[in-house]
Write a protein that binds this DNA or RNA. Structure first.
Lengths: 245, 245
DNA sequence: CCAAAAGTGTTAATCGTACACCCATGC
DNA sequence: GCATGGGTGTACGATTAACACTTTTGG
């Protein structure tokens, strides 16, 4: 493998994780910190998306998967390239310029942005050397570069996508309850959904399969568990060309 | 303006035009031709998307708009950045390598792909020095680079987009008939639509405004003309979060 | 008067939406 | 036995889908 970086090209990964306990759609961010040489002054102290330069003989998709694997240890996650960001002034704040100087980046770097979907619990942050941390999508910290914009555009794309494709199940454990799916939709779309109608709709899908299992260890009536069958979904699937303008 | 090109970054433009006469969704392509030095042998003879390197201090969007203006003379068209293509082997055919050599491109060039929507008649091909030509989406010629893939991905994106946003009207003249809209949907989606149901659906929209005008110069019953009001559409518009998985 | 495309109505089935109470469980 | 969240049914309105003939016009 040719490990020469393409100096003006990077990938950035918006990692969405859902926490079924707090019912929070989270984004995984890493700390960016830099002091002046004497250590007297904090030059940069914020969070950024995880990202890295693309190598000379690596595809963009491979690059994104590599970055994610380094961050989380995970592969084979749902991944979507959603937009390239490459405006000449996308790094305009002083702290970003300091950082670029420090890291010897190319000032005009084009970044190809991906988002990934996983369960917050899947990632072990303890063993992470980047000081990675989850933040709710509605409560993001101070962000470097143009990463706030990148996250918000990823989020918009996810919102639209989850209406027409079963990506929601990428964010849930393999075995889930109907109410967990509802909570997740509500978190993503920031809407209220009628529980009875939602249940009926979901349970009627052939690819939502009731298991012979219920929740355990909950201090209330344990709920029925279901799984999503991608196989059945794919077999049933046919595009419905419903024009809805 | 700094006219230094970024050597490994380009934009490519998929220009979709609809021809109401032939009822054909077309793509605008330019000729790529190269002979060997003695003129004895044709080295490259195919079509490509129009594209160009991004300049040092130009945004990606500006770059795409500039390329399109040079090709068609038009600005303010519907434009969408839909994907970045940057695999290391995306130029793999011999003719592409010859071309890259001849044009002094960077072999590993990342291209940010856009698509544009317009009416085929809007473009004056006569005054075009690039030997630009329209091709039906279903009958594309031999294409250079990875441009066939780029076109097909643009087309998939357009198909999905036209179901939920009124982009269809970008492809039609300001004054159109209901049947023209139907024909266009049929061309894009490659489906048959029931005329009565489609008419009713469209005519009931408040932003489809009947004009005091009918078609002229047609050798049959002239049809009622309508226009699309983006103002009314935008005012009425509210996202409906209909989950359809 | 003929060819060609415009325009028109009804019915049945499905789907979305609104809405309130009982049930099962762990503690 | 009580607090907690799980689970259930019905009725109405809106939307979709299937379907075939008449009308208007230019030539």
């Amino acid at each position: 493998m040719n490990l020469n970086k393409i100096l003006n090209l990077s990938v950035d990964c918006v990692v969405f994780g859902y926490d079924t306990n707090t019912k929070s759609l989270n984004v995984l961010l890493i700390k960016r910190y830099l002091e002046s040489e004497k250590g007297s002054k904090i030059l940069v102290d914020d969070y950024v998306l995880t990202g890295y330069h693309v190598y000379e003989n690596e595809t963009l998709d491979e690059s994104a998967s590599r970055v994610l694997k380094e961050l989380t240890g995970l592969s084979n996650l749902y991944k979507k390239q959603f937009k390239a960001f490459g405006d000449p002034d996308r790094l305009k704040h002083e702290k970003d310029l300091i950082w670029v100087e420090h890291e010897k980046f190319n000032l005009r770097t084009i970044t190809v942005a991906y988002y990934f979907l996983l369960k917050t619990e899947e990632v072990d942050l303890k063993s992470n050397k980047n000081e990675a941390k989850w933040f709710p999508i509605g409560d993001l910290p101070d962000l470097g570069f143009d990463h706030e914009q990148i996250i918000l555009e990823a989020y918009e794309d996810l919102k639209i996508k989850c209406l027409s494709e079963p990506v929601i199940f990428e964010l849930l454990p393999d075995k889930f309850t109907i109410n967990e799916v509802q909570d997740l939709y509500q978190s993503i779309l920031q809407i209220e959904i009628d529980n009875r109608n939602f249940r009926r709709k979901l349970i009627n899908k052939k690819y939502i399969i009731p298991l012979d299992e219920k929740q355990i260890g909950v201090s209330k009536k344990p709920a029925q568990l279901y799984m999503f069958s991608k196989d059945i979904y794919d077999k049933m699937f046919q595009k419905n060309y419903l024009i809805n303008i």
